[in-house]
Structure formats: structure tokens, C-alpha cells
Write a protein that binds this DNA or RNA. Structure first.
Lengths: 166, 166
DNA sequence: TTGTATGCAAATAATTTGCACCAAA
DNA sequence: TTTGGTGCAAATTATTTGCATACAA
């Protein structure tokens, strides 16, 4: 799952790593070699990924810097808690994307090539806030995914997949 | 998971059951007692539900009209294929809701009481189509969920849940 | 009859968790 | 030291699937 047109990172005062260190400090948690390694690995790429894909491109058992998958899962969750990553569900998997240092955005998802594309819309945010206000909701966030066939895939017509969760 | 304010059904020419029969016929599939029973059970309620909740309120093994959970899963999928239900992922579960005979809508999700609320927005659809057009996407649908705390839960302040997938 | 559908149990897949051992602070 | 962290393997959860049998057309 790679985004063909990711947004550019924003300028932020501190690096993801520094930010994570603050987070750990503030909670009396420890700065381990695994956590240091993982934060570099995750922020080295700008793409969407799931736990499995991340584990795949990490060192294997026995190799240097190996991190058990249990720790990968635990650490991904911490990254989300720390505000470094966002996560959401897509096709039954948990997808992660960089959050810290990146502008808020939503996604288009091609059900053929399974790639995610990003877009930003101020209007969408306004609608969200207006709807929430009408219903008396205190908004903490939202998730909008537009499903369809991307430009590339639209050119070559192939059979569609069976059941796509929209 | 019950919707506190579900939308009203539309007037449709044929019942979900009739519609499903057509679907089965057109594909040379069979009209079994399980399928007949399940369609009644599902359309008896107007709420959101997942497979587990549905199974819970169905007859148990040994009782009359018992349907194995394998068949429940298989049938829910058919209902989606037939356009009777829509499904989406929330907190890792697959949530179903009535589609046939109901107007298109989106959801607000209270991360405290875990209830889904519905809303309709024509503006949202316009934004969707505009964004998709800009990116060259052929839209097949979308999923928008606003996360937050609902009016009820907002009154009584309690601790938030740990990690909410937004 | 003839191929679908169903029930049951085993198989998957993606995470999570228990626990003994390791290591930051 | 002390308490959180990690690896490993077992446990979970939600579904899916293989297969022998039952049944709709």
C-alpha cells in the first residue's frame, strides 16, 4: 500500500523522535533500542502501511536490530498514543500513516489496485463541524474514505473484486 | 450498537424479501429456509449490528430455526451482494446496516457509548464527487464517520477509552 | 437427480497477552 | 535496585473453509 501522491511534510519544530522522547519522559516510560529503531524505520517512509508490511521490511529474527512482532504491535500503538501516527481500518487491516508533521487529510481508495490517495478539503471539515454541532456531538476526529477506481486503473478495464467493504 | 435516531425507511416497490428472491433467481441460487428466516430476522430490526450480535438474538443450536454461524456469515455476505445490507468496519468489527429501502447517509460514532448516529448531507456528496473528479476517480461509494462524544455522554463526564481508531 | 446449501469443526489471520528474563534509569 | 520492556509462544477474536450430508429445483 503506497500512496502515489502523498502530501508533503509540514515544518515542525521537533522531529518525530524528539516528540516521542518527550512522550516517553512525560509518562515515565523508557527509551529502548527497539523504540529508537522503530521510529526511524517508520518515519523513513512516507507511505501508508500495516503491521505486516512494516514487519516485512524489518530485520528478521537473528539479524541485528530484530524486533519481535509483539513489540512492533505494542510500539505502533504507542506511536498512535503519542500522536506520531494515525491508524484506521481498511479491508479488515489496520492501516497506519504518519500524523506528526503532516497536514490533516482524507483518502481516496482504489478498490482495484488497493492504493490510497490523499486529498485535503476545508469544506469537508466545515460540514463535519456543522453536522456535529447540530447533533450535539463533541468532535474528536473523523474518517472519510472515497472508494472507487483510480485514474490509472480506469484505463485498463479488468474484472472487479467481489465484495468491497465501502 | 443501536442507533438512537435511525432514519425512516423509504417507500420501495418490493420488500427486501422479494428483492432477495429476485437476486437468488437471477443467479440460480436457492431459496432455503435459513435464508428466509435470516432475512426476516435482519429486517425486523432497524439497527446497526454485527454478526455476533445477530447470532446472539437468533435461536440456539437445537432450537427451532437454528442457523449455524457459518451460514449467518455466508448469508450476510449475500445480503450485501444483493444490495440489501451495507457493511463497514468499525473498531475492528464488521458492522452491517440496512441498505435496501433506506436513504444514503453517514455516521457519527460516540467513542464513549459506542453508538452510531446517522446524518444526511447533500453537501458532503458534492464534495465527494468534486474531489473524485479532480483526481480522476470513478466513485463507487464512500464512508464518512465522525468520531466524538455524543450529547448524552457529554453530560456525564467519564474517563475516555484508551486507543480509539479514528 | 443434481448441484447448492448447510452444519460442524478445523483452519486462518491479525493481534493480544502471560510470563520469565532483560535492561533502562 | 526497581519497574518497565521484550521475546516467545500460547491465547484470542472474528471469520472463512473443507467436507460429508441434506435439500431445493
Amino acid at each position: 500500500m503506497s500512496a502515489a501522491d502523498s502530501l508533503e511534510p509540514l515544518n515542525v519544530s521537533s522531529s518525530p523522535r524528539e516528540r516521542f522522547e518527550e512522550y516517553l519522559q512525560s509518562r515515565g516510560l523508557r527509551q529502548t533500542s527497539q523504540r529508537k529503531f522503530l521510529i526511524e524505520a517508520v518515519f523513513a517512509e512516507h507511505d501508508h502501511f500495516d503491521a505486516d508490511e512494516l514487519i516485512d521490511r524489518l530485520p528478521r529474527r537473528g539479524e541485528k536490530n530484530y524486533v519481535s512482532s509483539a513489540t512492533v504491535y505494542r510500539t505502533l500503538r504507542e506511536f498512535v498514543d503519542a500522536g506520531l501516527l494515525k491508524s484506521f481500518q481498511l479491508d479488515g487491516r489496520t492501516v497506519y500513516e504518519l500524523d506528526y508533521g503532516y497536514p490533516q487529510h482524507d483518502h481516496l481508495y482504489c478498490s482495484r489496485c488497493r492504493k490510497l490517495f490523499e486529498f485535503q478539503s476545508r469544506d469537508l471539515m466545515e460540514i463535519r463541524d456543522r453536522v456535529a454541532a447540530e447533533k450535539g456531538f463533541r468532535v474528536s476526529g473523523h474518517r472519510m474514505i472515497i472508494h472507487g477506481i483510480c485514474r490509472e486503473c480506469g484505463k485498463s478495464r479488468r474484472k472487479k473484486r467481489k465484495q468491497d467493504l465501502v
